[in-house]
Design a protein around this nucleic acid. Structure first.
Lengths: 227, 227
DNA sequence: TAGATTGTTAATCGATTAACAATC
DNA sequence: TAGATTGTTAATCGATTAACAATC
C-alpha cells in the first residue's frame, strides 16, 4: 500500500524510495490536519495549508504525491480523508507495542506520556537492572528486571524497544533485543548503535545534540548582534 | 569568531550563512572526537574518521572548512585541537543557564540528567503550576511556582528555557519568556511556537514525530518483506 | 625530497520551487 | 461552463561527492 512502484527501464517494477526529508515532514502534516479537523474544517487547499504551515504549496503537493493523489482539482484536499491517509502511511492504524529498557527518569517519563497511546503506541513493560525498582509500576505498567527480558520477548509481541539506559550498555542491550526479534529501536542513548542486521530500523533521539544545535544558534545570534 | 566573512561583489563583507544540515552534523563530530580523545588517539585523517563515522571524507573536510582550516596537509587533524574548536563553535566554552518550565516527568528527567552540565548547560530552576510541587527539589534544583518566573528572570541570567509543559500552555509561556529576555527555547511541547521576535532561537524536540518516523520505517520494512 | 592529506574547486546528485496542463 | 486547484513536469537551488592542486 505504502510503496509506490514505478516502471523501470526494462518494464520491471522498481521500488521508488521516499526520501527521509519527506518522511520527516509527514508527522507535521498529520498534526496540522488534526488541528484543522478539531476546528471543523472540512477541506483545505495546498495553498491555504502552506500559509498555515509556512512551507510552499508546491512542497506540500510534491510530498503528498509521493504516496498517491489524495486531492481533487478545483476542490483541494478533504481534511478528514487526508488525515486518515497520512495516519496510515505513518502506521498509526496499527497498534505498536513498546518496551522501555532503562526505567530511570527518562524511561518513566516516556511511560507516563499518555499521548503516545492515542497514536497507537502502547508501552507494555519497562526493564531495569536496579533491584529496588523490581515490581514497581509506572501508570500501571510494571518494571521488570532486565534478565527477564528475553523470556518476556518470547511471550509478548513487541515492536519497538526504547533505549533509555546509559550509553555504555546500549550496544549490548540492542544486540540482545535484535536477537530476540525486536525490529525497531528508539534510541535515546548517546551512541550510534552498531547493528549488523540491516532490517532493524533505528530512530535516534540525541538530546544533547539537540541542545548543542540550540547553543550554536545562540552563539551565532550573539555574534550577529555584536557586529 | 564563529562567522566567516566572504568578500561580496562590491568588496563589502557579506556573512556566509552555514546551513543547518552542517550544524546538525557538528555535535556528532564532537562526540566521535571525544571518544578518540578518550582512546588516546592524537591525530586523525578525514579518511580514517570517515570510515569510523560512516560519512564521506569529503563531507568531513567540507563541513569543517566552513569554520576554518583546522587540519594540516600530510598530517590530518589533531584530535584534541579539533575537539576543542568544535566545542567553541557549538558554544560549549561558555556556561548556559537553563530553566525548565513544566516539572512533570520529562522536566524532572531533564533536571536529573547530569550529562548536560558537563557540556556547560546548567539547569538552575524548574517551574510548575502544581502547588504540590512548590519548594520541592530535583537533584538539588528547586521547583518554583510559575507566577514567580518573571521575578526570577529579572534576578537571574537565563539563556535557555526548556518547555516541558502541555502544548496548550506553551505559546503563552513562550511569549512571557521572550518578553522577559529569554532568547532561546528548547521546545518539547508538540506545537510550533508562534513567536514574533525573530532573534529568538527555537529548537524543537517532538518525540511523537520521532516515534511516527520510526513507525513509518517499520511499516515500510514490513511491506518490503511481504513482497 | 617524497608521500600524505588537506583545502578548495568542479561535477554530480537530490531536493525544492515554479510553472502549467489536466481535470474536477 | 468557468474557476479553482491539483498532479506533474521542468527549472532552480543547494548539498554532497569527486578530483586535484597546494602544501605540510
Amino acid at each position: 500500500m505504502l510503496i509506490i512502484y514505478v516502471v523501470g527501464l526494462g518494464g520491471i517494477k522498481v521500488e521508488k524510495e521516499i526520501s527521509q526529508a519527506v518522511i520527516r515532514r509527514m508527522p507535521r502534516y498529520y498534526r496540522y490536519l488534526g488541528e484543522l479537523l478539531d476546528e471543523g474544517v472540512e477541506r483545505i487547499s495546498s495553498n491555504e495549508l502552506s500559509s498555515r504551515m509556512n512551507v510552499t504549496a508546491s512542497q506540500i503537493r510534491q510530498d503528498l504525491n509521493n504516496f498517491g493523489g489524495f486531492g481533487q482539482q478545483g476542490y483541494g484536499y478533504n481534511v478528514k480523508f487526508l488525515h486518515d491517509e497520512i495516519g496510515k502511511i505513518l502506521g498509526l492504524n496499527q497498534r505498536h507495542n513498546i518496551i522501555v529498557v532503562g526505567a530511570g527518569n527518562l524511561g518513566q517519563a516516556l511511560a507516563n506520556y499518555v499521548k503516545f497511546e492515542k497514536l497507537g503506541f502502547v508501552i507494555i513493560a519497562l526493564f531495569d537492572v536496579n533491584p529496588a525498582l523490581k515490581g514497581k509500576t509506572v501508570r500501571g505498567i510494571e518494571i521488570h528486571m532486565i534478565d527477564e527480558m528475553e523470556d518476556f520477548l518470547k511471550t509478548h509481541d513487541v515492536d519497538i524497544a526504547a533505549l533509555t539506559m546509559p550509553k555504555q550498555k546500549a550496544d549490548a542491550v540492542a544486540k540482545k533485543l535484535v536477537d530476540s526479534g525486536v525490529h525497531a529501536i528508539w534510541n535515546f542513548a548517546h551512541v550510534d548503535l552498531e547493528l549488523t542486521d540491516k532490517d532493524v530500523v533505528v530512530e535516534n533521539v540525541h538530546l544533547s545534540d539537540s541542545l548543542m544545535q540550540l547553543s550554536y544558534n545562540i552563539v551565532k545570534n550573539q555574534s550577529a548582534k555584536e557586529k
